[in-house]
Write a protein that binds this DNA or RNA. Structure first.
Lengths: 211, 211
DNA sequence: TGTACATCAGTGAACGCGCGTTCACTGATGTAC
DNA sequence: TGTACATCAGTGAACGCGCGTTCACTGATGTAC
């Protein structure tokens, strides 16, 4: 994605900080205005810079979005690695508990509001789905995430003395699907559905005692 | 939602047609620009009207979106009713086939591009999630949809001589989750995952032969 | 360590386009006799 | 059925704001001696 050339000047610490603050602010603005509705002006104001600083760091809004997707991928990989490490050192736990750990690993740690993070991520997804040149890299990212989750949940069920009754990659898709769906229900304010209960039903249905 | 007052003049056929064309055009524009990125100008051009016509029919863009959500709900209900009717007259079918009918009932029939329809619906969802005054009506709509699907799939599994191993409402959430998730994968161009196979795994896992 | 200079990073004013919104208008549709 | 008039529906020009983008600038940071 990044067209890093050998002759590019290295970015200073100050510059990196500015880029980071702009991207963090943009995430919040994207969450409540949508990507197409977020103005450069509003992003800069939220970050505490003027618009000139923005154009000094990013070619245009599209370049910012690209950088944010890359950054989001990096955080996700980091979170996955942490989760794998946690899992390896985890003692005996209940099946549900282990799967909860595995899945929660894919929610960003950070100090972000969960609602804001969720909305921002959906915006990035929709944006990537619409822009032809972003679609393929984004797809590759998602695919990679799923193989990492596959490794995690395989470990998790083994620790719990269980095994899947469906192919592992199907299990991963279904777990991710349930996760996303339940998050969506929260997003629109549904309180009648008990997310944990639904999730437990799924886990119970697709696992059994290992022989 | 609609503040219909008794003294409102009835809308003429011509007016209804104009509103309809504007909303149809807006759906396409929303799909590839996003709701905040769609300009009134572009919507009008796509529909073959001038901007004046737009403001003669809708207070502003927000009013258009509201009308579109209402319209979308109406179509969904109509589709659900058709599906219920189809189900009642259906003979013996395989379990997967029946569930496929049940779920496909919730995809709009019409002549719409499926990709466009999907993107537009996601935009409407995100928009409703963001606007406080739209959230509750939208949630009510989604909840209603799920109870209609519940009725459908209950019928479907019974026809197939099966029963759910999880509570019916959990089954519905999981089926809907899988459906949405697999559509999302299509949206970002994933071809490695076989949607039908994943779906079959889920159906197999949450059903068993009825005694 | 201190000074002089060069480069870097962000400022803020300016420009101009596009878009939302309004409104006086005209052609189309409907109605009364 | 035809004519005269009223209302309705969409036109297109106009206004003005906000926003993307540029650029000459200044203060901050780094470097050479």
């Amino acid at each position: 994605l990044s067209q890093q050339v050998a002759t590019d000047p290295p970015i200073s610490a100050r510059r990196a900080q500015t880029r980071d603050r702009l991207m963090t602010a943009a995430r919040a603005v994207f969450a409540d205005r949508g990507i197409p509705g977020a103005s450069v002006e509003e992003i800069c104001e939220a970050a505490g810079y003027t618009r000139g600083a923005f154009y000094s760091n990013f070619g245009d809004k599209s370049a910012l979005v690209l950088a944010m997707i890359e950054s989001r991928m990096a955080s996700q990989y980091a979170a996955a690695e942490r989760a794998v490490a946690t899992m390896k050192t985890a003692g005996d736990r209940s099946p549900d508990e282990l799967l909860a750990i595995a899945l929660s690993a894919f929610e960003l740690a950070g100090s972000e509001e969960p609602r804001e993070a969720l909305l921002a991520d959906r915006e990035l997804l929709l944006h990537a789905a619409r822009e032809p040149e972003l679609r393929e890299p984004y797809r590759a990212f998602v695919t990679d995430c799923f193989s990492q989750i596959a490794a995690l949940v395989t470990d998790a069920v083994a620790h719990a003395g269980l095994e899947f009754t469906v192919p592992v990659d199907h299990a991963v898709q279904l777990l991710a699907a349930a996760h996303d769906h339940l998050k969506t229900l929260e997003l629109i304010g549904d309180t009648r559905t008990d997310p944990i209960a639904v999730f437990e039903s799924l886990v119970t249905a697709i696992t059994r005692q290992a022989n």
